Amino acid sequence: MSSVVSNAQLNKRIISVIIFTFFCYLSVGLPLAVLPGFVHNQLGYSSFLAGLIISIQYFATLVSRPQSGRLADMLGPKRVVMLGLICCGMSGVLSIAAMLVQTLPAISLLLLALGRVFLGVGESFTSTGSTLWGMNIVGPLQTARVISWNGVATYLAMAIGAPLGVLLNQGFGLAGFAMLIMAMALVGFWMASRKPAIKVSAASRVPFQQVFSRVWPFGLALGLGTIGFGVIATFITLYFASRDWSGAAFALTLFSLGFIAIRLIFSSYITRFGGLKVSLVSLLIECVGLLVIWQAPSPWLVDAGAFMTGAGFSLVFPALGVEAVKRVPQQSQGSALGTYSAFLDMGLGLTGPVAGLLIAHTEMQSVYLAAALVVLLAVAMLLRMLRPSQLAEQPEQ
């Protein structure tokens, strides 16, 4: 059998479970551009509350990430994925309920908030469970490939979700995207139920405190590296507006294209050169991209910087993720993956308010210099990790 055929079969097996991540993040993307307008215009609440409704989901994801990993270790990833899909579906049900009682704004807002909590838990359960499921199907040597495909599914779904949600909202109101979320949850649940479960190891698991102590350096480096993505996703539109430029959406598109292209083309480099070295080079590229945006005198240079930042950030999550999960035994890898992923959620959650405070006291472009300096801090951490005396390679059994 040729290596090409072998790779194609591996990818097919991975995609057969990563499809649940796609369903999940399409469910996340669909309401993003719709709910703030509904809360502000239809329910009559402030812009602050409109933004808070969106943020509730991120907080729920952050809090439930470690638990999703522990449950995947105990119950198996299949059950956790199915639970996650149920939660995603419930967010659709609650969105429809909120639309039906919009003449009672307080109740409608409460239902939306509860739906966002369900969606946040669904995101952490489905994504973590799908990744661990894929890792178990194809084996530990393909961990980088599984995490890379998971990221491609995530960003592709998010890129499709926001504009599709707006389109469905224009035609059918909240029920448009909510019905699609419910349909994906039902189809995904049915698909997952038909797949064979992964046998759960009966071996004793590493206590959470020990998992955290082995994973946190990689998670912290990931969280610092995430800041570059956060300031582009959150503030690039305002940056263009502050200079009377048009085309901010194209910069976001180029960021996504750089991210996906590098994931598809170079993910094998993680296995070949090691996660620490790949993430080190990746963070340096991300840093350069942010500095280009900071000093860019024209929109096309901002576009180039956004593409470079996306390309640089692309392999950071899988590269450091590979290093994190191999620090624990297989029966605790779900817990390690969930804990590690929580640092990404934390980085994204802190970026908005912290960068917003910085913008209030300095110029808009200063957030890109600040983000570059934060990414350099992650580079310094990795240089320290690369020393032979740092961080043992093998997990304690």
Rank of each mutant, 00 (worst) to 15 (best):
G44H: 01
G29K: 08
F118H: 01
P140I: 13
F266K: 02
V4D: 15
A372L: 08
L186Y: 02
A197H: 05
G29N: 07
G274E: 06
L71V: 02
G188N: 07
V215E: 05
V374F: 10
S267D: 09
G310F: 11
G44F: 01
A296L: 07
T143R: 10
A106N: 04
A221R: 04
A178R: 03
W133N: 01
L280T: 03
F177C: 10
G347A: 05
I86E: 06
K199D: 06
Q333E: 11
G171Y: 08
L220K: 04
S335Y: 10
S95D: 06
L348P: 01
Y45E: 05
P388D: 07
R384F: 15
N7H: 14
Q9H: 08
G247R: 13
S193W: 00
T253P: 15
I18S: 14
T103H: 12
L174E: 01
F229G: 09
M74D: 14
L156N: 06
M184H: 03
V328M: 03
S47Y: 15
A72L: 00
L75K: 02
G305M: 10
I147A: 00
P217W: 07
L348K: 01
M182I: 15
G310M: 01
V231T: 14
S242T: 03
T128F: 11
G338L: 14
R116L: 10
G334S: 07
A113L: 12
P66S: 01
G120H: 08
Q42K: 11
F59M: 14
I137C: 04
I107S: 11
M381Y: 13
V281L: 09
W133A: 04
A380I: 15
V80R: 02
N169E: 13
F48M: 11
V367I: 15
V146G: 02
L320I: 05
Q102A: 15
S389V: 14
T131V: 11
G223I: 07
F20S: 10
G44W: 00
R243L: 13
S127H: 04
G223H: 09
D303S: 08
S268K: 09
A248M: 11
S314P: 01
G219D: 08
M184D: 05
L111G: 09
L383I: 11
G258N: 03
R70S: 12
G173I: 15
L110P: 11
V354R: 00
T309V: 12
K277W: 14
L85Y: 06
